[in-house]
Computed example of a mutant assay.
Amino acid sequence: MTAPDFFKGSENRQLAYHRTPGKGPWIVFLGGLKSDMEGTKALHLEAWARAQGRAFLRFDYSGHGQSTGTFEEGCIGDWAEDSFNIIQELTDGMIVPVGSSMGGWQALLLARRIPERIKGVVTIAAAPDFTEDGYWAGFTQAQKTQLKTDGRIEIPSDYMEPYVITWRMIKDGRKQLVLRSPLALPFPVRCLQGTADTAVSTQTALRLLEHAVCPDMRLTLVKDADHRFSDAPCLDLIEAAVTDIVSITT
């Protein structure tokens, strides 16, 4: 594993990244909650981009991977700022955000903020609004009370150690919601979703498909694929989705 470079983001957050120059548009991988840029999908897509001679950027949000800060200090809005700032500084021209899980939400926030720079979007098990529709909606009244009183609770994960969820994350998440108001995506969007995903349901994928205003949006459901979406056939589908986006001429 090669050492990353570091970008100074908001509030002196040091964001670790790997940047591969090449022809545009820039492919930007946006990881999931508590994931890092060394995951299977990010590394596979980077290798694919190198082979294609394409520009590629992967990075760790603050409190993730090799970036500074702790996960518990962060929230959706902080990671949106991280994404926006590093993309604005380290890429030029058009971009194709590829967002996995929470990264899918981040891709949609980017699309809302800088639509003029987006060639298209690829999402993998996108989890928009999960702090409200997943966490908050699923908490018991006792958990909600504890969250407000103590400022944090722990919840189990199917994929790693328990998540620490903070009241700040819930409150900030309400400022970042994308499924409660019109969501214009004036570019091609390709959504990938496994039917055996226990973290993000197919209903979430269908809700996003129905909610967004988009001239060219497609959802691919993969039978028995789980949330990781990282086996060989799934990686091939990610490649195909990105290839589809970058090949579209306007």
Rank of each mutant, 00 (worst) to 15 (best):
151 G>C: 04
79 W>A: 00
206 L>Y: 13
228 R>E: 14
5 D>P: 00
80 A>T: 13
7 F>Q: 03
55 A>K: 00
58 R>G: 13
161 E>Y: 15
91 T>L: 07
99 G>M: 08
230 S>L: 03
181 S>C: 09
212 A>R: 02
225 A>T: 00
35 S>A: 15
132 E>N: 10
68 T>K: 00
136 W>K: 07
166 T>Y: 11
184 A>Q: 08
131 T>H: 07
172 D>T: 14
220 T>M: 15
91 T>I: 05
239 E>S: 13
85 N>H: 06
153 I>Y: 02
4 P>S: 14
231 D>T: 12
31 G>C: 14
114 I>M: 12
220 T>G: 02
36 D>S: 11
86 I>Q: 04
224 D>G: 02
11 E>V: 04
45 L>R: 09
132 E>D: 11
139 F>I: 05
95 I>M: 07
242 V>H: 03
22 G>Y: 10
19 R>G: 06
97 P>C: 11
193 Q>K: 02
159 Y>L: 11
9 G>F: 08
18 H>Y: 12
51 A>H: 10
104 G>F: 09
56 F>G: 01
110 L>C: 03
217 M>K: 02
172 D>P: 00
133 D>Q: 10
161 E>M: 10
31 G>L: 07
123 T>P: 00
58 R>A: 12
152 R>T: 12
26 W>H: 01
199 A>S: 14
26 W>K: 03
216 D>K: 01
239 E>R: 12
70 T>E: 08
202 T>C: 04
164 V>L: 11
163 Y>V: 03
163 Y>T: 06
37 M>I: 09
100 S>I: 04
39 G>W: 02
10 S>I: 09
182 P>F: 13
216 D>L: 08
175 K>D: 06
143 Q>K: 08
190 R>I: 05
108 L>N: 02
53 G>L: 04
201 S>Y: 09
73 E>I: 04
224 D>P: 00
94 M>A: 14
180 R>S: 09
57 L>H: 05
218 R>W: 13
120 G>S: 03
29 F>Y: 15
167 W>I: 03
160 M>T: 08
